[in-house]
Nucleic acid binder design. Structure first.
Lengths: 143, 143
DNA sequence: TTAAAATAGTTAGGAAGCAAACAATTAGGA
DNA sequence: TCCTAATTGTTTGCTTCCTAACTATTTTAA
């Protein structure tokens, strides 16, 4: 197998995604929704712009995902502070429940992913993984 | 910023992909093509089944990507050894040229990605990254 | 004050990704 | 042999994702 970075980042992301989705189809979630739920659990009431940046998807993509989530009653969009240009997104009760399931499943997969890897190895790995993220993010506003 | 594995794998893969695509649009490549070209540079003449597995995409997805690549003259499909069920995919001259550009660009991005990270740190990181891939791949046939 | 620029979000169109259902071919076993 | 299994690839229908072009609102600066 090819062990280069470009190969592993593509394949690992694809594998991770499949792991998530097979576990989440039972919950009635579509592929774009988990990451948004996860982000909102940590940053409820964010503007769409910030959700898109946090999930690293385009705002055009987010529009469609939020539309489907709103239709299923997972989120609501509200206007705040007389700002009619931005909309702020809040989890509903249903959304929060699903979001918590997503978090559980992420943790469960992460356990599997690091099986057989020492704790200090894992920490070093995560440090570098984080540095890589900074290196690829030219702007520094990933709060 | 969220520093968990699930967050970083999703975001880093998205960022990496964007880096690749902004550099490759000039070459006339669509988003699905680089990984296939890269795989074929290393395994020219593979069956579709093995390309799909190597790129971690479904064969249904590959069908469409190969169709567009064939139309642009990057690959040809051939029948071999009287096996009329499988088709073997070969790079054309055009395909090989584009594939080499893809390889160059991958290397260029990888340099940027590991900027400021020591060589031994990088090696340890890659070892763990590889182990993670094995952990997520239940089957062991990622040759 | 008001016209231009910047910001936030949406729509449209195309490619990529998946699962499920399907054809076609090959392999295996009775 | 011949019928069933398994394998390989395609089609269909859906969601995701992107870019480009657009509307609407807010900010800036002349």
């Amino acid at each position: 197998m090819n062990k280069s970075f470009h190969y592993l980042i593509m394949v690992n992301a694809a594998l991770f995604n499949k792991q998530v989705l097979t576990r989440l189809y039972a919950l009635g979630l579509t592929p774009g929704q988990p990451k948004v739920l996860d982000f909102l659990c940590l940053h409820d009431g964010s503007m769409q712009k910030d959700i898109a940046f946090g999930c690293q998807i385009e705002s055009a993509t987010l529009t469609g995902i939020l539309k489907s989530m709103e239709k299923k009653g997972m989120v609501e969009r509200r206007i705040k502070n007389d700002n009619y240009r931005s909309s702020y997104v809040y989890l509903t009760e249903i959304g929060r429940e699903k979001g918590e399931k997503v978090t559980e499943i992420f943790l469960e997969i992460e356990e599997k992913v690091f099986k057989g890897i020492e704790e200090d190895e894992k920490e070093q790995f995560m440090d570098v993984f984080y540095k890589i993220c900074s290196n690829m993010t030219d702007t520094e506003r990933l709060q």
